[in-house]
Design a protein around this nucleic acid. Structure first.
Lengths: 352, 352
DNA sequence: CTTTTTTGCACAATCGATGGTGCAATGACT
DNA sequence: AGTCATTGCACCATCGATTGTGCAAAAAAG
């Protein structure tokens, strides 16, 4: 607190002040001083000086020397989405509780950008990397491997590294069953009354579609191909798909499964252009949870993926140092309409 | 690509391979080679070798030497919220377009944590810092100043550093006027029919409350103090406030202003516990935009803050190197109910 | 064919921390 | 008192880049 100096203190400054050598100062301040048999009194002296001058280690220097940085990366497709942002939130908490520093970046689902961004992270010598929802996990894997960087895939699996993903098929089954049952409360449901919108050519989408079709066939007897409408992960494209359907049928399907909250945003865009009546009685299932999405003016069943558990599992795998490309499934939960779940925010104390 | 080596190539490796000295290699690879009068041919040779071996600079080493890191920090209260996550998204895009690396972290609105997190960032020698929505901007300022770190406040102003904030008072006026007018369409509105929930003892809340009261008095003639219910920024506390009101009155206020989307989540929690009828005819204004919040089953007017413009302005101020604690206002926009705005995501190409 | 200028590059110090090694002083033990 | 073990610490190379400086060789000038 009492420091006059404008620049940050270094171990050399403290070395002069304390009369000890820089290596002694270093040992004291990084905790290895007992191992190095530094006298308790010396350690105390140095620690006091360090506090007094607000010393903090230069982590770039430490990282350079030790070829570790204390940084742990999380690569996301986008920030601006409750699923990924709550993943970022849990990630950050867990990384910090391990004494490391989180580095959350997004790569816009662009395979080339994914690789580039990871190259950048590697240049900072990050210690570990979580690859979430990558379009090309295996491409990223190769970049990591070349640099000897430990990593796991989250949300979308790769074939070359361990993956932790939502049990998409089972989640889709729960969700599909829920919307079918709900729709049937209002009368019989024919196979053409139940659609699926969104998703693209990735593992998650495939599994969700599989779960959807299984349950739909089991309960409704059929699933015409036209009822599956993969639109990519863009609100605009999804909105267009709804629009097209609406133009053809004069209404929306009685019930439908939306592949993600991003696609659900596409539904909002469609709704914005049409009067309320257009969708007064639809039943929606969305594979993702959003606290406001759950309260839309029609029943929205949602699937909440347990991103916190995925991150935890990811660290367990990294710690165990298993690089085998095994896929671990994490069970998601079905969230009925009009449900306000608590999130990572609730851990905060909110004084006043 | 043809590299056999397991470890990352360094300028020393390339120095041996090319026959040039490390300093020459360094100059070539960091672009300063013309200034250093390196022959074009030599530069080419080295650049080819670098590509061949997939060389990338060790940014920790560079940072150590140059005491800059290429990292730009953004300190958020939380990730898990559309306002802040879309801010993170624009921030990231802008930082990358400047050739730097974004470092987005959250500090849970805890002043002590804010300072600690910033200390950590400083240890990594970040070059610049955006302090968004900090509970104690001035406390963070002091930490930055001691380290000579350039910084700006976003969203919540400090008194010691330049601040860029939403024009909260004006936004609140627009929002208040909108909900009053809308409520009056259904009949006369008395001052006790219009409440404000959420916010706490910070600049933004004060300004919003001021705007709210101004307009309310102008249009409704009065604003009893009981109509202002600051609940902090926690969904749980906000929900309790609604519950309390409901217990006392058997209904919610006809119209109310909610201070942020986080507080609006509190409304969801309340709603989850009550039947639809309870809130069939409320009119809500929310100071924040959320794409799903806009489509709730009652009219929700929202204010969209222009976080992209704030970040842009922030860089302008940092680049101009003005440290004067001036507060810049950025005008937000009023978003009528059932509106789906496009966001940073829409810039993405979505192949397939 | 000198002298001066320009070109092209190598050398070496430096950033701040880490960790292996070595050595003096102290204490224990015979 | 002499030997040996232990304690407590200093020394120094090292991580990979940057940058000021110096010096040959080549080119231009005289």
């Amino acid at each position: 607190m009492t420091d006059i100096s404008k620049k940050k203190a270094t171990i050399y400054d403290l070395s002069i002040l304390s009369g000890a050598s820089p290596s002694t100062v270093s040992a004291v301040l990084n905790g290895s001083w007992r191992k190095r048999r530094i006298k308790e009194a010396t350690a105390q002296l140095i620690q006091n000086l360090a506090n007094e001058h607000g010393y903090t280690a230069n982590l770039q220097a430490r990282g350079l020397r030790s070829s570790r940085s204390g940084l742990v990366g999380l690569l996301l497709p986008v920030h601006d989405n409750r699923y990924f942002s709550s993943m970022a939130q849990s990630f950050e908490a867990q990384v910090r509780s391990r004494g490391q520093c989180p580095l959350v970046v997004s790569a816009c689902r662009d395979p080339e950008e994914e690789r580039q961004v990871v190259e950048t992270l590697i240049s900072y010598s990050i210690d570990e990397l979580f690859i979430a929802g990558a379009t090309d996990p295996d491409g990223v894997h190769k970049v990591c491997e070349k640099a000897g960087l430990k990593h796991v895939n989250i949300d979308l699996p790769g074939t070359l590294a361990p993956s932790i993903i939502s049990d998409n098929c089972e989640g889709a089954r729960m969700l599909t069953q829920a919307i079918i049952e709900r729709a049937q409360e209002d009368g019989p449901l024919s196979p053409d009354d139940l659609y699926l919108f969104g998703g693209r050519n990735d593992h998650a989408s495939h599994e969700r579609i599989r779960g959807f079709r299984d349950v739909k066939r089991a309960l409704l007897g059929a699933d015409p191909d036209v009822c599956i409408q993969p639109t990519g992960y863009s609100p605009a494209m999804t909105a267009r798909a709804f629009e097209t359907f609406y133009e053809g049928h004069g209404k929306l399907p009685r019930a439908f499964f939306v592949n993600s909250s991003i696609n659900l945003e596409g539904l909002m865009r469609f709704l914005a252009l049409h009067p309320h009546e257009t969708f007064a009685d639809i039943i929606v299932g969305c594979y993702d949870y959003d606290p406001f999405g759950s309260f839309l003016p029609f029943p929205v069943f949602m699937i909440r993926q347990d991103s916190e558990a995925m991150i935890t599992k990811g660290f367990a795998i990294l710690d165990a140092d298993r690089g085998a490309p095994i896929t671990h499934l994490v069970r998601p939960t079905l969230v009925p309409p009009r449900t306000a779940l608590t999130g990572p925010l609730d851990a905060l104390k909110d004084i006043e």
